[in-house]
Simulated scan of single mutants.
Amino acid sequence: MSRIGIIGAGKLGTALARLALDAGHEVRISGSPRQAMIELVIGTVLPGAQLLPEADVIAQSDVVILAIPFGKAHSVDFDALAGKVVVDAMNAWEAAGGHLDEDHDGTTSSLVKLRNPEMRLVKSLNHLGYLDLTADAREAGHPLRRAIGVVSDDEEARRVVARLVDSMGFEPVEGPRSASRCLEPGSPIFGRPVSAEELREALGL
């Protein structure tokens, strides 16, 4: 069991929290104070999860998932994430509230990493929609088990996130940071459930 922190209590954040709870992890989640009746929503949808301020979610978690719209990433206290395993589950597209800056290498993680190079950043949990995440979780070995990319040059952090993905009911496919472009909007596999074999081929592994 791990202590999973989720920054963002929207559709993606609550879907990931539900999967983590079902897998037996401790879950801490933070949301915008502007969200209507957030305490009631979390208590009803995610019984067992702790709704905490962002600072407490970060301090009390082993893995922190960024599940907010990319356009709101500037609101995160990135300084507090130094040394933490951080999952970038954000997407830079209109539907997610933001676009990449002009000076970038085509990935959200390239910009997120600049905010604090001491984060142990992993790109994952971003290329399937929240409905697919909640509907398609399967036990290991199931013939219909879907794959999720886990991309980073930090091999230890990548393994930590891969174990989390596996526990949530998906087949982790690990790859180097250079493969993260294949997980972004516009790639052939984005938003499309794929097998581990199909994902490895897309990532060039």
Rank of each mutant, 00 (worst) to 15 (best):
R18Y: 07
D101Y: 09
H142E: 04
L51Y: 05
D62S: 09
V64R: 10
V161H: 12
E198P: 12
R158I: 06
G169M: 07
A80S: 13
L46N: 00
T134C: 09
H127D: 00
S2W: 12
G10A: 10
G191S: 07
G149D: 00
S152R: 09
N126G: 02
R181Q: 15
W93N: 12
M90F: 01
A80Y: 10
A202M: 08
L183R: 12
L111A: 08
A96L: 05
A95P: 01
R3L: 02
P143G: 01
L111E: 10
V150T: 02
L203P: 01
H127L: 05
L12K: 11
A162S: 10
A20F: 07
N91Q: 09
R18T: 13
S2C: 02
A135R: 15
V57N: 00
G24I: 05
L51Q: 00
Q50Y: 04
G48W: 03
I68F: 04
V150G: 08
I58E: 02
A137Y: 05
V165E: 03
G186M: 14
D22F: 13
E201G: 05
A73Y: 00
I189K: 08
D88S: 10
P188Q: 13
E184M: 15
L133P: 15
L183C: 08
S178T: 14
S109G: 11
D103N: 09
L52E: 11
V151E: 03
A95L: 11
N116S: 14
H74N: 02
L21T: 04
G186P: 12
A55T: 07
Q35Y: 03
G71R: 10
G5F: 13
S61M: 03
A202G: 05
G97N: 04
E174Y: 10
G141I: 08
V76T: 02
S109E: 09
D154Q: 00
A59L: 09
K123C: 02
S75T: 08
L133S: 06
A59D: 10
A135Q: 15
E39S: 06
I4L: 12
A23Y: 14
R146D: 00
M1T: 15
L40I: 01
K72M: 01
V27N: 03
G186K: 15
R3I: 02
E118H: 15
I58N: 06
V63T: 09
I148R: 10
